[in-house]
Nucleic acid binder design. Structure first.
Length: 600
RNA sequence: GGGGACGUAGCUCAGUUGGUUAGAGCGCUGCCCUGUCACGGCAGAGGUCGCGGGUUCGAGCCCCGUCGUCCCCGCCA
C-alpha cells in the first residue's frame, strides 16, 4: 500500500498500484506521486534504470491508474520530505504499467483548495478520492463497527425492519412507493423503525438494535438529509438511566476509534433547566450559560430604567470578545436591536451604566455575577450582554415567559458564532474537551399548537408521561405541566438523538389518545395493529435513536452532513451525480396506475 | 412557503462611474531540464460573463424575470 512504506523496508522489492497524484518531470528523471487510500509514495523513474518505464512515465498524467514494480530505497541526505509519512523513502521503478488513462479532471483530488459543492457533487467519485474524504469514510466505517460490536457484546440483537411499510405516526412527510399490484395503494418508506422496534419488544427480543436508514420528505439543512442513518435501539424493562448507560458505552467505543476517550456518565439536565439556563433544548455546553439578573434589578431600578417588572432579565458573556472599538460597539448594539426587532426586548449597556453614579453599583454586581458563569474565562475582556424586556411587552407574547429565555438563548448562539475567532471555544484540540455531551430529560409531554389551537404530542403519542403527572390528573386538567419520560442526547449544541420510555399499558395509551383529542375510532384507524399488539402482554420498554451521520460529522470536525455521506443530496433534494429524481416512462406510470397532473 | 449570499476560462477568483480586444493564479497542451516533492524555465490554447428579456449610442456591470448551488426561518411529533 502506498502510504505504508518506511525506512524499515529499505531494499525490499515492491509492487504499488494506485493513481498518479502528481507528476514532476525533470527530463531524464521523472517523479510520480502514486496515491491509494492508504497514502502517497514517491516513485522515481530514472532513464538509466529503465528507459521503457521512463518513457511510459512521460505519457502518464494526473489520475492515471498505474502499477509500479520496483525497489524501496532510503532517500539520501537532504532528499527526505518530512511533510509526508513516507517521506524517508521512495520507490525506484524498474517497470511501469499504465493500467488506465484518465481525462483531465475538472478539479484535482490532489489539490488543497476544493472546488464548489456543485462540481464536487457532480463528480463525486473524484471528490471522494480526496484524502480528507477518504479519512471521513474510514472513520465512519470504524465508528459504525465499534458501535455494532459494543451493542452485540452487551447482548443486543441486530434485526432488520422493512423499508417498504405503511405511513406511521411520525410527524414528517413520508416518501411514498406506489404499488403495482394494488392500484392506488402506496407503501411508505420509514421515518424511523419506531413501531417495529416496539413490536419486537412485545415479541420478546428484549434488546434490539439496528443501524437503520430512515427517510423524511422535509426541507434540508446542513445537518439534515432526506435519507440518513440512525443507531436505533430498544430495551425491555429499562429505567431511562439504563438506556443512558448503553448509549454512553457505545459512544465511548465509537470515539475511541478516533483516539478520543470520553468520561462517563454524561451531564444531565432537565428540559426546564435547559430552557432557563440556555434558552434552548439542545444547549451548547462549550459556551457560558445565561445568568438570571432578575433579582439584581429591583423594582426601583426597573422603574427608572423602564424595564418590565414581571419578566426575567438575562445576561450572558462571550469570552474574550469584549475589546471592541467604539464604532464596533455601536454597530453591535445596532445589530442586536435589529435582531430583536419589535419583540419588546432591549439591550442594557452595562459599560454606560458604570459611568453613572446611580447605576455603577448595579453594573459592578452584574459584571461580577456574569463572570462567574461556567465555563468562563473570568477575564475582563469578556463581552457582557444583558437583555431587558421593555414595559408592556408581556402582552405581545401572550404572557408566556418562555419566549424571553428562548430569544436570549438564540442571541447567545448568534453572537457566539459571530465572535468564534475571539473566544476560540469551537477550535478543535483533538481531545475530549472538544466534545460536550449532555442528556436533556423530562421533556414536556404536550405542545400547544397556536395555529390549530390544540395540544399535540411533543415527542410521539407512545411516550410515557411521568407516573405522578398521571396520578395528579394533569393529563386532563394541566397538559402544559405534564412531563414525559423523554430524553435527548446533545453534543456541542446539536441534537444527536432522542428517545423515551414508552407506554406499555393499553389503558394509559387510550387515555393519552383521548387527551390528544383523538377518538377511540380514530386511534384504531391510525394505529389499530399496534394497539392490538399492546394488548398481548407488552413488557415495559424504552429506547432511543441517534443520528450516525451527525456523530461522524462532529467527530470529523465537519459542518455539513454531506462531508460524511458518500452520495448526498443538495438542498433541493437532488442527486447531482446520478441526476435524480427523474420523470419515468409512460409504461412505468401505467403499470403503477399513476397519472401526472400539472397544477398551475 | 419566506429571507440572505453566490453564479465571469476546467478550478479558485479579480474586473473601477456603464466605455477600446474581459484579466490573474492554478490546471491543460507543446518544448527544455537528473533530485523534485505546490519542481523550475520558455511558448501556447482556452470565455454563450448561468439563462431569457429590457434600458442605453454602448451592459460582465443598471432594471425585470428565471434557473442552479449554499446558509437560515418555517417545516423536521
Amino acid at each position: 500500500m502506498c502510504g505504508e512504506l518506511r525506512v524499515e523496508q529499505d531494499g525490499q522489492p515492491v509492487v504499488l498500484m494506485g493513481w498518479v497524484n502528481r507528476r514532476r518531470d525533470h527530463g531524464n528523471l521523472i517523479f510520480l506521486d502514486v496515491r491509494d487510500r492508504s497514502g502517497i509514495t514517491q516513485v522515481v523513474l530514472d532513464k538509466e534504470v529503465s528507459g521503457e518505464a521512463h518513457a511510459k512515465a512521460e505519457a502518464a498524467r494526473s489520475e492515471y491508474v498505474v502499477a509500479v514494480k520496483g525497489k524501496v530505497q532510503r532517500r539520501g541526505a537532504g532528499l527526505e520530505n518530512p511533510n509526508m509519512p513516507t517521506g524517508a523513502i521512495e520507490v525506484v521503478a524498474s517497470e511501469l504499467l499504465l493500467l488506465n488513462e484518465a481525462k483531465t479532471p475538472p478539479f484535482s483530488p490532489a489539490d488543497d483548495a476544493i472546488a464548489n459543492e456543485e462540481v464536487r457533487l457532480k463528480y463525486r467519485y473524484l471528490d471522494l478520492r480526496r484524502t480528507e474524504m477518504q479519512y471521513n469514510f474510514a472513520l465512519r466505517s470504524r465508528v459504525a463497527m465499534a458501535i455494532r460490536n459494543y451493542l452485540v457484546e452487551q447482548g443486543f440483537l441486530e434485526i432488520e425492519t422493512p423499508f417498504m411499510t405503511r405511513s406511521t405516526p411520525e410527524g414528517a412527510r413520508d416518501y411514498l412507493v406506489p404499488s403495482r399490484v394494488h392500484a392506488g395503494h402506496f407503501y411508505a418508506l420509514p421515518q424511523s423503525p419506531q413501531i417495529f422496534k416496539q413490536i419486537l419488544m412485545i415479541s420478546g427480543f428484549d434488546k434490539y438494535f439496528q443501524i437503520a436508514r430512515c427517510f423524511r420528505d422535509e426541507d434540508l439543512r446542513a445537518d439534515r438529509q432526506p435519507e440518513f442513518t440512525q443507531i436505533d435501539l430498544e430495551m425491555s424493562f429499562p429505567q431511562q438511566e439504563k438506556v443512558f448507560r448503553v448509549v454512553e458505552g457505545f459512544l465511548t467505543a465509537a470515539f475511541k476509534t478516533a483516539s478520543i476517550s470520553l468520561t462517563t456518565p454524561f451531564v444531565q439536565m432537565t428540559y426546564d433547566d435547559a430552557i432557563k439556563n440556555y434558552g434552548i433544548d439542545k444547549p451548547d455546553m462549550r459556551l457560558p450559560a445565561m445568568v438570571s439578573l432578575t433579582a439584581e434589578l429591583t423594582p426601583e431600578l426597573r422603574e427608572t430604567l423602564k424595564i418590565e417588572k414581571e419578566l426575567p432579565v438575562l445576561g450572558f458573556v462571550i469570552p474574550k470578545a469584549g475589546t471592541l472599538s467604539g464604532t464596533q460597539k455601536r454597530a453591535l448594539v445596532e445589530e442586536i436591536r435589529a435582531t430583536f426587532g419589535d419583540c419588546g426586548l432591549d439591550f442594557l449597556d452595562v459599560a454606560r451604566l458604570k459611568t453613572n453614579d446611580a447605576f455603577a453599583p448595579l453594573a459592578s454586581t452584574i459584571e461580577a455575577k456574569l463572570s462567574s458563569a461556567e465555563p468562563s474565562t473570568g477575564t475582563d475582556a469578556d463581552l457582557i450582554i444583558v437583555v431587558t424586556p421593555k414595559i408592556g411587552t408581556p402582552a405581545k407574547w401572550n404572557f408566556d415567559p418562555q419566549w424571553i429565555y428562548k430569544r436570549v438563548g438564540a442571541l447567545r448562539l448568534q453572537l457566539a458564532a459571530k465572535f468564534a475567532d475571539k473566544h476560540g471555544r469551537f477550535v478543535k484540540t483533538g481531545t475530549e474537551a472538544d466534545f460536550k455531551f449532555l442528556w436533556v430529560t423530562d421533556f414536556p409531554m404536550y405542545e400547544w399548537d397556536e395555529e390549530t389551537k390544540v395540544w399535540n404530542a411533543a415527542h410521539h403519542p407512545f411516550t410515557s408521561p411521568h407516573e405522578e403527572d398521571i396520578k395528579a390528573g394533569r393529563l386532563t386538567n394541566d397538559k402544559g405541566a405534564v412531563r414525559a419520560l423523554a430524553y435527548d442526547i446533545v453534543l456541542n449544541g446539536t441534537e444527536l438523538g432522542s428517545g423515551s420510555i414508552r407506554i406499555h399499558r393499553q389503558d394509559v395509551q387510550a387515555e393519552i389518545f383521548r387527551s390528544l383529542g383523538m377518538s377511540d375510532a380514530e386511534a384504531k384507524e391510525r394505529f389499530g395493529f399496534f394497539l392490538d399488539a399492546l394488548e398481548y402482554g407488552t413488557p415495559p420498554h424504552g429506547g432511543i435513536a441517534l443520528g450516525l451521520d451527525r456523530i461522524v460529522m462532529i467527530l470529523a470536525g465537519a459542518t455539513s452532513l454531506r462531508e460524511v455521506i458518500a452520495f448526498p443530496k443538495t438542498a433541493k433534494a437532488i442527486d447531482l451525480m446520478v441526476d435524480a429524481p427523474t420523470p419515468v416512462s409512460d409504461q412505468q406510470m401505467r403499470e403503477l396506475h399513476l397519472k401526472t397532473v400539472v397544477r398551475s
